[in-house]
Amino acid sequence: MALDDTLSNCLPDDLPEDLLPAFSRHEPFALLLSDLQAKGWSIQDDFFSAAFTDKLMAEVQAIQSENMLQAGVGRKQSHQLDLSARRDYIKWIDPINDTCKTFLDEMEALRIVLNRQLFLGLFDFEAHFARYEDGAFYEKHLDAFKGQSNRILSTVLYLNDDWRETDGGELIIYDEYDEEVELGRFLPKKGRLAVFLSECFPHEVNVAKRTRHSIAGWFRVNNTTAKELDPGQ
């Protein structure tokens, strides 16, 4: 099946025009798939429309700091706060309004296409808004450890307008086989989407020098068994 046909079959029919994300167009989506096949990571600018990105930014800006959680490290029983490792605040995204629902619906469409094209067996997607205040960072880490997590693909969508190099907050992606080798440094430019294999690429967030907003997400497989439930978040 052609990529354009696959996309047209996956995108919602009733999506309002002003919320239509950029991956409904052929080129950025094709480049993402090509990158993932070739090297396991991809950076795509303007992946979502400016209008839709603005709506997401307004959504996270409206969240009062006291309603966000101090992010921790580790998952399930090993989860704990560690301000020496990361200092961002998060709020998990639920389909509570049109903007959040549209974002989750479109990432669901992306999940279906990724499965059809790359045979990844992705089961679902979870995401949270992230806020890095001035001075916040996230040290080098992996989003998943081989054989120990259900996270397969990590995604980060950046929301800030007019981000400058002097504002810091860059995403740094390191080599899969030598974590001292940088593959690239990427400013959190509005509309930029980063996608990478969760258990392969160490990455970090440099110290932000102004408030930085993004959406971090993960495409997951289902590790539920007869003996153990595989919860999200």
Rank of each mutant, 00 (worst) to 15 (best):
S34M: 03
A38S: 15
D134H: 13
D45K: 06
F123V: 01
T6E: 15
L122Q: 01
D88G: 07
L31D: 08
I43C: 08
A127L: 06
N67E: 15
R25N: 10
W92Q: 06
G184H: 12
K55M: 05
E17W: 06
R210Q: 15
V113R: 03
T224P: 09
M68K: 05
C100N: 15
K146S: 15
N97F: 02
L153E: 02
D35C: 08
R192M: 14
G135T: 04
R212H: 05
E170L: 09
F47W: 00
N150G: 08
T224Q: 09
K146T: 11
I93E: 02
D88H: 04
D161M: 14
K146H: 14
E179M: 12
D230H: 09
E133F: 02
L19F: 09
L69R: 11
A38N: 02
L153R: 04
Q70W: 09
N223E: 14
A30L: 13
F29E: 04
Q64T: 02
D178F: 00
L33E: 08
N150H: 00
W41M: 11
T155V: 04
D162H: 14
H213L: 04
H79T: 01
D162P: 12
E139A: 12
D162F: 11
S49T: 07
N206A: 14
A194P: 03
